[in-house]
């Protein structure tokens, strides 16, 4: 079973460029049209379950706005952090 992960997108940094959305292998990201950041962008968020914590979104993010977490299981915890 795939690992379960989750992300936090910073309102301070996200500019809604959508690079993470097109890069997400699970297609679980979209812009949050119900929310505006202080700069006036619609930030990215995960809109459904399925995030595996692979951190591809963080790899392509030009603004280092995404923090990635992954549920710890025995097999996963021994893996080296990506990037």
């Amino acid at each position: 079973m795939a690992a379960k992960g989750w992300i936090e997108v910073s309102d301070t940094y996200c500019k809604g460029c959508e690079l993470c959305i097109s890069a997400c292998p699970q297609n679980v990201m979209e812009l949050n049209m119900a929310h505006l950041t202080p700069k006036g962008y619609h930030p990215a968020h995960t809109f459904k379950d399925g995030c595996t914590g692979c951190a591809i979104c963080a790899v392509v993010c030009p603004d280092a706005a995404i923090t990635v977490y992954r549920e710890v299981t025995k097999s996963v915890s021994s893996m080296a952090a990506p990037v």
């Binding site: 951190a55 790899v59 923090t67």
Partner: peptide, 10 residues
Amino acid sequence: MTTENLVYER
């Protein structure tokens, strides 16, 4: 949210 869960941060 422990550092154990952390995969990537700024």
